[in-house]
């Protein structure tokens, strides 16, 4: 749902809320989900992102996001140069996806340890985004809330252990969805919360027996 600062805002570097601001958010979402600093990024552009992306600075915006910038960062136009200084290698190609939103990017990012992650996300307009896939698993969340993504084994009672930790931590759940990865038998549980999650709450969830890993995206403040 839109609040009045979605109407009057975001404060952003132009020229397009969907092709520039949204693209920055997609890049920074990929960085967050990787959980570390990316050193390599292969960026696929689909639909209107591929067609008019260059003129809107979509390419620079995505790289800016991967560098951890926010949509109002004045350095976005210089992101390619900054990436080079900081040792982030990147490349672009055009993609044709089936049934994807016209403003979609698929980012394959890698950190220095070789950890790799593939994120597919769409820019919905007004700077809002939606993550559609993580490592090939269909998901659906927007970053409009604080978002906890837990990958865990598909065993009975696991969800209640996770939600119990949230309850103990005083965190209210706004939305929760469960996505099954057909290949590995793993489950991705995406929990959107009203409150921010303190590191200790995240840590208590991470050490739950069947949990593989925990990723956390904190909603932008301004």
């Amino acid at each position: 749902m839109l609040d009045i600062f979605d109407i009057l805002g975001p404060v952003m570097v132009g020229p397009s809320s969907s092709h520039t601001a949204g693209a920055v958010r997609i890049g920074s979402m990929a960085r967050t989900l990787l959980g570390s600093t990316p050193v390599e990024a292969d960026i696929g552009l689909h639909g209107s992102f591929a067609e008019t992306g260059q003129g809107h600075g979509t390419d620079r915006a995505l790289v800016a996001g991967l560098l951890g910038m926010r949509p109002d960062d004045m350095h976005i136009p210089r992101s390619f140069e900054i990436a080079e200084e900081r040792g982030l290698r990147f490349s672009f190609r055009k993609l044709q996806l089936r049934d994807a939103h016209p403003n979609t990017a698929v980012l394959t990012v890698k950190d220095a340890e070789g950890k790799e992650l593939v994120v597919q996300a769409a820019s919905l307009g007004g700077g809002r985004i939606r993550v559609d896939k993580i490592n090939g698993v269909d998901v659906n969340f927007t970053g409009a809330y604080n978002t906890l993504i837990v990958r865990h084994k598909d065993v009975a009672g696991e969800l209640s252990r996770i939600t119990n930790e949230l309850a103990v931590g005083g965190v209210n759940i706004a939305n929760m969805s469960v996505f099954r990865d057909r290949r590995g038998g793993d489950v991705l549980t995406v929990i959107e919360t009203d409150q921010k999650l303190k590191p200790d709450v995240r840590e208590r969830i991470r050490i739950i027996y069947a949990v593989n890993d925990v990723t956390y995206y904190e909603k932008e403040d301004a």
């Binding site: 109407i7 009057l8 975001p10 952003m12 132009g14 020229p15 397009s16 809320s17 004045m74």
Partner: peptide, 17 residues
């Protein structure tokens, strides 16, 4: 300024800022 990648406030969109 918007067309030149400067900072603006989308109101309600960047095109109409």
């Amino acid at each position: 300024s918007n067309a030149c990648m400067c900072k603006i406030v989308a109101a309600p969109t960047a095109g109409a800022c």
